[in-house]
């Protein structure tokens, strides 16, 4: 177990180092998400009640669409130097490679959310920096990372991978996006945990199913 965790961390740490050098992924997610949020603040006349009505939808649509950009990039790095082949030549199971990439993507999305949420709160004037929203954000990040890592691996060897990933990722993530939007909406409207527990359960179920399914799928999509 310890050796597996060390391998997962070695893989994720490598992705963090590469990101630190290039700043491709996190910057792309943040800039795209903030642009979407900024456009909506201009497009909608934001009254306090309207902010609470449409704000959660805008926030999670921005995070999901921006996340696709980052996830695409995380595997493009492996494709460019054929380093994915290098990883596959190591005596490490494909599942561990999946979990290493998943952890890296989870950290990138979470870092982006740490920047996006306060800006969103300031522009929409609704409080999303609460424990409940942080839990929702973590669950959403796990699900996005799991689905995105598996589908990015599917798309990486396809010529039109920039189109392929959103086509696979966004429809699959709809239940998770719905759960995140409805939960966030309940929180900003003063609801308690019990008001959105069904949506939280949906998000947890989505994460469990897609983390396991994606890990299994991953080994098949990597091999020619």
């Amino acid at each position: 177990m310890g050796a597996s965790l060390a391998t997962i961390w070695t893989l994720a740490r490598k992705d963090l180092l590469l990101e630190l050098r290039s700043r491709d992924i996190v910057l792309a997610i943040i800039v795209f998400a903030l642009l979407v949020i900024a456009i909506f603040t201009f497009a909608i006349e934001l009254t306090p009640s309207r902010s609470r009505d449409v704000g959660p939808g805008v926030l999670w649509a921005a995070v999901a669409f921006a996340g696709v950009l980052g996830l695409n990039r995380s595997f493009a790095v492996e494709a460019e130097g054929d380093t994915l082949d290098g990883l596959m030549l190591t005596p490490v199971s494909r599942e561990l490679i999946f979990f290493g990439k998943l952890l890296g993507n989870f950290i990138f999305i979470t870092i982006a959310e740490i920047v996006i949420f306060p800006v969103f709160e300031a522009l929409f004037n609704i409080s999303v920096l609460q424990v409940e929203t942080i839990v929702i954000a973590l669950l959403a990040s796990i699900g996005f990372s799991a689905v995105g890592t598996a589908f990015a691996a599917v798309s990486v060897r396809v010529r039109s991978r920039e189109i392929m990933l959103p086509l696979l990722f966004l429809p699959t993530s709809v239940p998770l996006i719905m759960a995140a939007v409805e939960s966030t909406s309940a929180v900003v409207n003063g609801g308690s945990w019990s008001d959105f527990s069904d949506w939280l359960q949906l998000a947890i179920a989505f994460d469990v199913i897609f983390v396991i399914a994606s890990a299994v799928l991953f080994q098949f999509v990597l091999e020619e």
């Binding site: 070695t10 590469l18 290039s22 054929d82 380093t83 190591t90």
Partner: peptide, 20 residues
């Protein structure tokens, strides 16, 4: 292809693959 990470140094590449 050399299968090396372009943005990592030679030492970082070898250390990474060595750990794997």
């Amino acid at each position: 292809s050399p299968m090396l990470y372009g943005d990592m140094t030679v030492r970082e590449n070898l250390t990474f693959f060595g750990k794997m």
